[in-house]
């Protein structure tokens, strides 16, 4: 058989070995020099230091985060929302140097923790967070139209058992 002669085998050997060497080189380089952002929890409980103005009660909120590297998509939910609620992510942002920046729109009913009315006015919000030890975060919430910034702490919630895995 022609294709098993020495020349072809040598060619295949050389190409395969060089690709493996390239892979080896790139992976060593990557492991040592490239740093991907640390994994974030998918669910945080936000405890606000003070009540939202114009709200009667708004002590805690839930922040759902879907992380794809440095790109984040998130949604703010009432604190008692079910763990697997599939809410559309309304906030988008970037995670860089242990610092999160999220902005988007959140319904007023969620922020105030009241039942959702027919016409839920949307507030533009900006969330800035800083990763501190043990995955906890501190940050501030800015709501468009409200001058003061609200400080909060975010504690990761235990990820509930993932249903996809077999």
């Amino acid at each position: 058989m022609n294709h098993f002669n020495f020349k072809s085998l040598a060619f295949y050997g050389v190409t395969i070995v060089s690709v493996l060497l390239l892979f080896r080189f790139v992976s060593v380089y990557g492991e040592n020099n490239l740093k991907a952002p640390p994994p974030l929890n998918s669910r945080y409980r936000l405890t606000l230091s003070e009540n939202l103005p114009k709200c009667e009660k708004s002590d805690t909120l839930t922040l759902n985060i879907q992380q794809s590297g440095i790109y984040l998509n998130a949604s703010v939910l009432p604190a008692n929302a079910k763990a697997d609620t599939d809410e559309k992510h309304s906030l988008a942002g970037i995670f860089k140097n242990r610092h999160l920046n999220l902005s988007g729109k959140v319904g007023r009913s969620i922020l105030c923790n009241i039942p959702r009315p027919q016409n839920d006015p949307l507030n533009s919000v900006t969330i800035q967070m800083q990763l501190v030890d043990k995955g906890n975060m501190t940050g501030q919430l800015t709501i468009n139209g409200i001058p003061q910034t609200l400080k909060f702490t975010a504690v990761p919630e235990k990820a509930e058992e993932k249903s996809q895995k077999f």
Binding site: G30, L34, A36, P39, I70
Partner: peptide, 11 residues
Amino acid sequence: YPLVSNASVSF
């Protein structure tokens, strides 16, 4: 890798 992956996955 630095953009769309996270540290829980090795390079």
